[in-house]
């Protein structure tokens, strides 16, 4: 019973963090929310995978957050506010989008549970919510950091669902490598263009 409550709390945390990431443009808050999101995902993944494998995903997720955070920190303050006025401008639209995602999730969760019994309602809800939030994220932004956050969110949702049907160590490892790779690719893309061409020759 307690486990079930904690699982639903994790789903609630996912809803809050993904909404925060969608409507707030401060990269520090976004990455903090992403780190929290990985905690919730860790809990849901460990419903079907051993604790050690789940913790691998958590650690990888935090490593990605750290890599993105350090990269963003190293960029000049001029690049801090690329979309200064859009914080409130699209806020309500994004909240409505998240409401739609939440409604769709509520609608399909029980149906998926009927098709694939044994997954668990919180696991399905958490996974679908993250996939939906990731898709919405990718749909409303072209900023590199936010695109990477959207892809990581989507991938985390997929990992939660896939962990319930495939418990292979190789798959878990490769998915972690992909998450890490996405974070590093994102860091590279953020840094690209910040060094002058002359430096390229020295590198």
């Amino acid at each position: 019973m307690i486990i079930e409550i904690v699982s639903w709390a994790a789903v609630g945390l996912i809803l809050v963090t993904s909404t925060v990431m969608l409507i707030i443009h401060d990269w520090r808050i976004n990455l903090g929310a992403l780190a929290l999101q990985y905690v919730a995902a860790f809990w849901l993944v460990t419903r079907h995978l051993p604790f050690v494998m789940g913790s691998t995903k958590l650690i990888t997720g935090w490593m990605v957050v750290a890599a993105l955070g350090m990269t963003r920190l190293s960029l000049s303050s001029e690049e801090d506010d690329t979309e200064p006025s859009s914080l409130l401008r699209g806020g309500w639209f994004r909240i409505i989008l998240m409401c739609i995602v939440a409604l769709v999730t509520a609608g399909v969760t029980t149906r998926i549970e009927a098709i694939i019994p044994g997954l668990g309602l919180p696991v399905i809800a958490g996974g679908i919510l993250l996939i939906g939030a990731g898709v919405v994220h990718l749909g409303v932004t072209s900023e590199i950091l936010r695109v990477i956050i959207g892809l990581l969110t989507l991938l985390t949702g997929f990992e939660i669902l896939y962990a319930a049907v495939e418990s292979s160590t190789l798959v878990a490892g490769l998915l972690s490598v992909i998450s890490l790779g996405l974070g590093l690719a994102g860091s590279y893309l953020l840094l690209a263009g910040t060094s002058p061409p002359e430096l390229e020759n020295e590198l």
């Binding site: 997929f158 590093l184 690209a192 263009g193 590198l203």
Partner: peptide, 30 residues
Amino acid sequence: MLVIPLLVPPYQKPGRGVVRFLIYQTLAMP
């Protein structure tokens, strides 16, 4: 993901193409 550093030289701002490439390839996997 290994192609990304090849597509964007360090001195060049990433364009829309590379971001879309990354998104589409990532969406394919799930």
